[in-house]
Amino acid sequence: MYYPHRHLLAIEGLHPPEITHLLDLAESYVLLNRSGKTQRDLLRGRTLINLFFEDSTRTRTSFELAGKRLGADVLNMSVATSSVNKGETLLDTAATLNAMNCDLLAVRHDQSGAPNLLAQKVGAAVINAGDGTHEHPTQALLDALTIRRRKGRLEGLTVAICGDIAHSRVARSNIHLLTTLGSRVRVVGPPTLIPAEAERLGIAVFHDMRAGLADADIVMMLRLQRERMAKGLVPSEREYFHFFGLDQEKLAHAKPDALVMHPGPMNRGVEIDSAVADDPVRSVIKEQVEMGVAVRMAVLDTLARVQRRNAL
């Protein structure tokens, strides 16, 4: 079996064949989706609950579409974090979900490790749809699929991840996935937005965009949240854009055929210039969204298969 785990909680710890299996399966779903055919028997009778403690229209609809394309019954539960604070704990929610006999659970939470805690308490297969500043595994998978389809490989590519690395679950999952599959990963950002001992993750750290982007095959931009300014980590959006915002001039330091990626939603004029974001040749941002559905179909399909096998 290529993917033996009950859940998908993190990229860290996955072996190359497990990741490659998910990417290969997702690839087949890209073709299926484009052909207009469906596979509605695969998850027929299964229930997918999208349990979102944090708003995210993009990720939630992507999971929803993926579930429906495979024939699952899909329910969306948006739980305001405040109501959890009012007394209902995460584990009360877990008990409720167990009572509903849900099979697959995609969880988004603002706290690192929340899906791990749920996974200990629910019968369902848990998919981490983004937890705090920890991981966002399906985002890294869809990014890898996008790169692989465009470049034909991941091994040996130089990928520069730019921006708020410290608070980014997207960055962590991408770092683990890309280093596991043999890419050279750099992170670029001001020192206040680089996590402690980042080099220990097997990556190179840059504080200058031009140096960090030099000869990169892929430039991956991250969203900068406003509260980083409020907390004094960055003085202003203007200063941030000047030094770390991606524009054509900085992008010129990357390889001529370098691709530009962004997990969305973008802050135009803060971390990325519109001219770059909308560049039809370089930007693959829209393609990332398409890959997202295929990757989530592959993950749901795989975990459901593991479930069936475990039930035997």
């Binding site: 860290e12 705090g132 500043t133 920890h134 679950r169 402690a196 001992e197 980042a198 220990r200 993750l201």
Partner: peptide, 15 residues
């Protein structure tokens, strides 16, 4: 404690 482990787990660190 701030460091590699807290970075990997995505937990806010204390130096």
């Amino acid at each position: 404690t701030e460091g590699e482990l807290a970075t990997r787990l995505g937990l806010p660190g204390i130096p």
